[in-house]
Computed example of a mutant assay.
Amino acid sequence: MMNNVEFMFTKNFNSKVNCSFQRDAASLIAPDAITANKLLDFARYEFDLSELYARKLRKEIYEQKGTFSDVSFLKAIYDQIQKQYTEEHATAAKSTNLGLETAKLTALRTEVSKQIQNYPDFCKTCKPPKKKK
């Protein structure tokens, strides 16, 4: 929660965009331990993908927020990032059969990990570099 003045003069929203796992809300149902581990690997991929898109959101907010922007500009950015995340997640779920196709999932996880490295300034505790004028 921020008041309007604080929002107007805040540029770095990294600490305000969260990507977290809620253990109490999680469950896993599988017929055997092998399937359970594959589903768990898919859940790890989902978390990595969420972190990637959280960083993308932080970057977009940072780049598009003007000094006198109001909070309404966030909705379009959030909706766009959420749509991209949902599409990529659905594609991964389908192409890996929810992680049961291990080789495909491993390749996707490796790619997401590489992409996360493209956003080193947009982790939750990071401070992006100042824009050059």
Rank of each mutant, 00 (worst) to 15 (best):
70 D>A: 06
35 T>G: 05
9 F>G: 04
108 L>C: 04
43 A>N: 09
41 D>Q: 02
42 F>R: 01
127 K>M: 12
108 L>A: 10
95 S>R: 08
100 L>V: 11
126 C>A: 14
127 K>Y: 11
50 S>G: 07
24 D>L: 00
107 A>M: 07
120 P>G: 11
75 K>G: 14
25 A>N: 11
112 V>R: 02
90 A>T: 12
132 K>R: 15
64 Q>P: 10
27 S>L: 02
130 K>H: 15
32 D>A: 05
128 P>K: 13
72 S>M: 13
6 E>T: 04
8 M>P: 06
4 N>T: 11
119 Y>N: 00
130 K>Y: 13
3 N>K: 10
45 Y>D: 08
126 C>H: 08
30 A>N: 08
115 Q>H: 07
21 F>H: 00
107 A>W: 00
110 T>G: 10
102 T>N: 02
115 Q>T: 05
38 K>L: 04
33 A>C: 00
88 E>D: 11
77 I>C: 05
28 L>Q: 03
98 L>T: 01
103 A>P: 00
24 D>R: 00
61 I>S: 04
86 T>I: 10
117 Q>I: 10
45 Y>I: 09
95 S>V: 14
98 L>W: 05
120 P>S: 12
82 Q>V: 01
44 R>C: 04
125 T>H: 13
71 V>A: 13
16 K>S: 12
29 I>E: 06
51 E>S: 03
31 P>L: 06
5 V>K: 14
112 V>F: 05
129 P>I: 04
81 I>A: 09
100 L>Y: 11
95 S>Q: 13
106 T>D: 14
18 N>M: 08
59 K>R: 15
130 K>C: 13
68 F>T: 14
95 S>C: 10
72 S>G: 10
122 F>N: 03
10 T>I: 10
12 N>S: 12
40 L>S: 13
122 F>S: 03
76 A>Y: 06
98 L>D: 06
59 K>C: 12
89 H>W: 14
111 E>W: 01
48 D>V: 01
126 C>F: 09
127 K>C: 10
86 T>V: 08
129 P>Y: 05
74 L>A: 12
